[in-house]
């Protein structure tokens, strides 16, 4: 289990077994954005992600960067003036 704050709300995301276990950068990083999006049913959607105030480019969605306590914003385009 990893605990994140997604769009201001706590999210507990189970960690599945797979390629994500090859954590390299952060010692305890075990989850990537693609897995989080899949968990939330947002895979393949037109969204953008910010992690702790920094944009996460789509090219990094497969890198296991998420750690406990990360604050994420996931946004879409909506109608507005």
């Amino acid at each position: 289990m990893i605990q994140l704050i997604v769009n201001g709300q706590p999210q507990h995301v189970p960690i599945s077994h797979g390629a994500e276990t090859r954590a390299q950068s952060a010692a305890d990083a075990t989850l990537n954005i693609a897995q989080l999006l899949e968990h939330m049913g947002l895979q393949g959607k037109r969204i953008a992600v910010e992690r702790n105030g920094e944009i996460v480019p789509r090219s990094k969605f497969d890198e296991p960067i998420l750690v406990n306590g990360d604050r994420l914003e996931i946004v879409v385009a909506v109608g507005g003036g």
């Binding site: 201001g8 959607k45 879409v76 909506v78």
Partner: peptide, 20 residues
């Protein structure tokens, strides 16, 4: 055409149409 940027609704129907 202007558009706004907003948080995805957690728990919304993922098949909802997208403005884009």
């Amino acid at each position: 055409v202007t558009v706004a940027i907003r948080r995805t609704n957690l728990g919304q129907n993922p098949d909802e149409p997208n403005l884009l």
